[in-house]
Simulated scan of single mutants.
Amino acid sequence: MGRTNDSMLTEFLLVGLSAHPKLQTVFFALVLWMYLMILLGNGILISVIIYDSHLHTPMYFFLCNLSFLDICYTSSSVPLILDSFLTVRKRVSFSGCMMQMFLSFALGATECVLLGMMALDRYVAICYPLRYPAIMRKGAYVPMAAGSWVSGLVDSVVQTSLAMQLPFCANNVINHFVCEILAILKLACADIAINVISMAVSNLVVLVIPLLVISISYIFIIATILRIPSTEGKRKAFSTCSAHSTVVIIFYGTIFFMYAKPKSKSSVGPVNQDVVEALISLLYGVMTPMLNPLIYSLRNKDVKTAVKTMLGRKNSDGV
């Protein structure tokens, strides 16, 4: 089924939550709503940042990249997720599955590195406020953002290329609703030691190193904030970093749970395992991109003022 001979796989079958039709209906409505909120929230945030010249700063440049990244990331997987909820077994071609896996992995890795770059930006802004304009000039923050995208793409090229070379001899059924790399590696009928080593190196480069950068940056940030004499100054500084730190905790926490935890053939039943993986994937793939614009804008006076200004001008133009 789904192959032309014993060595060439032509398609995968995405099972997802097909054994739980009631859950599929709930998840379909929930994921669709969240996806629309992602498009709306991140789209508004990007528009506001581009529209308001006062927001043309390194911090908002990185935030604009993050919002665009979240839209691209969810768009690479959510349509397939929604489609898998509507069919008992979703058939996906081998090339289509690899392409979706490549895009999701690349964009996820990019976001890891980008969050590290954003931490460096906050470190310079708080620890060296007078030198901030000179250090975080356009010649610095644009390459930092571009480097995040390039590193994610390169990492994904390596992981996807190695996965595509594996033979899939017996089983083409993916117990997931997207082409997720760990789920695909489980189907290989050859030694995946190279893939495991490559994934470990990838975890080190795009997970551990950026997280170390973030942690060290925040150690210096907190130490600097504690030395600020005024309570108002401390509150303002903490407020500046609270959004980024919240996003980091949610994003990295979920990724480490998915990719860094040991994989074991435990006694957890298949029903419970499906539900758990669905919830984790939902949190990782949809929840964080939906929360990002809310986290960054609700407590940001500059963004709220820019939104009101933009909407006010549009209303006045329409009169």
Score class of each variant (00 low, 15 high):
32 L>W: 08
126 I>F: 08
50 I>M: 09
87 T>E: 06
56 H>R: 09
213 V>P: 11
202 S>V: 01
156 S>C: 03
14 L>F: 05
113 V>I: 15
224 T>E: 15
147 G>M: 00
141 Y>A: 03
254 T>S: 10
87 T>H: 09
282 L>T: 13
312 G>I: 13
18 S>Q: 11
47 S>N: 06
278 A>G: 14
134 A>V: 08
222 I>E: 10
204 L>H: 07
184 I>C: 02
186 K>Y: 10
268 V>Y: 01
304 K>S: 11
213 V>Y: 07
128 Y>T: 08
118 M>V: 06
203 N>H: 01
70 D>K: 00
256 F>Q: 08
193 A>C: 02
69 L>Q: 11
178 V>I: 13
135 I>P: 06
2 G>K: 10
135 I>F: 12
212 L>K: 01
279 L>G: 15
260 A>P: 01
9 L>I: 13
287 M>F: 12
127 C>E: 05
88 V>R: 10
201 V>Q: 12
242 S>F: 04
297 S>M: 07
283 L>C: 11
9 L>S: 06
152 G>Q: 06
193 A>P: 00
262 P>V: 14
44 I>R: 14
45 L>T: 11
158 V>H: 00
84 S>P: 01
254 T>V: 03
225 I>Q: 12
296 Y>S: 07
236 K>G: 07
73 Y>M: 06
209 I>Y: 02
255 I>Y: 03
115 L>Y: 14
283 L>H: 08
31 V>S: 14
164 M>P: 02
102 F>Y: 04
37 M>A: 15
128 Y>R: 13
43 G>L: 09
298 L>S: 03
115 L>F: 14
70 D>P: 00
101 M>E: 03
111 E>Q: 05
301 K>S: 13
316 S>Q: 09
77 S>K: 04
264 S>R: 11
275 V>P: 11
170 A>L: 04
158 V>C: 06
166 L>F: 12
298 L>P: 00
270 P>W: 11
196 V>P: 00
83 D>R: 02
192 I>T: 14
162 L>S: 12
221 I>R: 05
103 L>I: 10
45 L>W: 04
85 F>K: 05
57 T>A: 00
248 V>D: 09
296 Y>H: 06
178 V>Q: 07
154 V>D: 05
81 I>V: 15
172 N>V: 07
32 L>C: 14
186 K>N: 12
236 K>D: 14
255 I>N: 01
113 V>N: 10
223 A>N: 13
9 L>Q: 04
55 L>R: 01
79 P>Q: 02
39 L>Q: 03
121 D>I: 12
127 C>Y: 07
159 Q>P: 00
56 H>D: 08
